[in-house]
Design a protein around this nucleic acid. Structure first.
Lengths: 156, 156
DNA sequence: ATAATCTTTAGAGTTAACTTTAAGTCAAGA
DNA sequence: TCTTGACTTAAAGTTAACTCTAAAGATTAT
């Protein structure tokens, strides 16, 4: 299948502006032009865009993605670099997910705290609630009870 | 405990510039000043910074974080808004993690592909490898075999 | 006491990734 | 044919979140 830039934009969820910007940045070296100068996207190009979204979505800057594409164009002599790049990206991603899960624990605690606070009509009362205090210590550790900013505001 | 801006920076992993910038943006309304005008950070302020890092790290812009702080200052009348904010942030975060795990599957596939390619000295040969083709179909679905950009480059 | 280090301010500069604008050219339907 | 909407380029503008600079005042170690 062949797609105009507008069709490619709809298929990928990007804008036509963004697609032209990516091309200018060297991220779409395989996109062809029609006789009258219009861009023609192939399914292969859509596939590249999906890989670009994957790498961008896992925190790689466009420059890094361009490096991968340049290695691809260079051919099999750059296979080790590309493998290493994906291995590094996997490690990054594992760390990202682990960090997000820590953040999730914090947010879950806040939801329980604020649910209780809404129930009681007071953040102070919710904080004093024994059940929540216990749970908080489980999450942050007994020593770092004071790392909850809501709790600490009482100490000022 | 009390901390200078430099000590607070070391404790949080931020720079002193960033801490001043956050204060200017209204994110640190509880930080006090010494008689001679130096900032004095309390453990409570460090706790706020940890919460800021959590919200920032889960994709909330500084403006959204400031809104939360403004609600906190406003007091118990804004408890429902704050609860709703954390609930939305949790939902966001669940979606983020789910997306990252999709990306992880793609990257894992690429690692297997490139490991085979390095072994065989050729991306083309690795692609033809039956085991990998089968696995690829499992990940992307049989219809979307052509969504691998490495595979699709052969069709140009 | 004095040198080295830290902190202060206001404001300018940077970076990545778009996003918009302007001034046109191209293609498809009534 | 006319009009409507999609497309073209080059270049300027935007946004978020820093990041740096300069010049001066404050703190700490010897």
């Amino acid at each position: 299948m062949r797609y105009s830039i507008g069709q490619a934009a709809r298929k990928t969820g990007l804008t036509t502006h963004t697609l032209r910007y990516y091309e200018k940045e060297g991220l779409l070296p395989f996109v062809k032009k029609s006789g009258s100068g219009l861009r023609v996207f192939s399914d292969g190009d859509i596939g590249w865009l999906e890989m670009i979204e994957c790498l961008k979505g896992t925190g790689m800057p466009l420059k890094g993605i361009k490096q991968y594409i340049d290695w691809f164009i260079e051919g099999d002599s750059t296979l080790p670099q590309r493998l290493e790049m994906f291995q590094k990206q996997k490690k990054n991603l594992e760390e990202q997910i682990a960090l997000l899960q820590k953040h999730m624990a914090k947010i879950d605690y806040k939801i329980r705290l604020y649910a209780k606070a809404v129930e009681l009509g007071s953040l102070e009362k919710a904080r004093i609630d024994k059940g929540l205090q216990k749970e908080q210590q489980k999450i942050y550790g007994a020593d770092s009870f004071s790392t909850s900013e809501d709790a600490k505001q009482t100490t000022r």
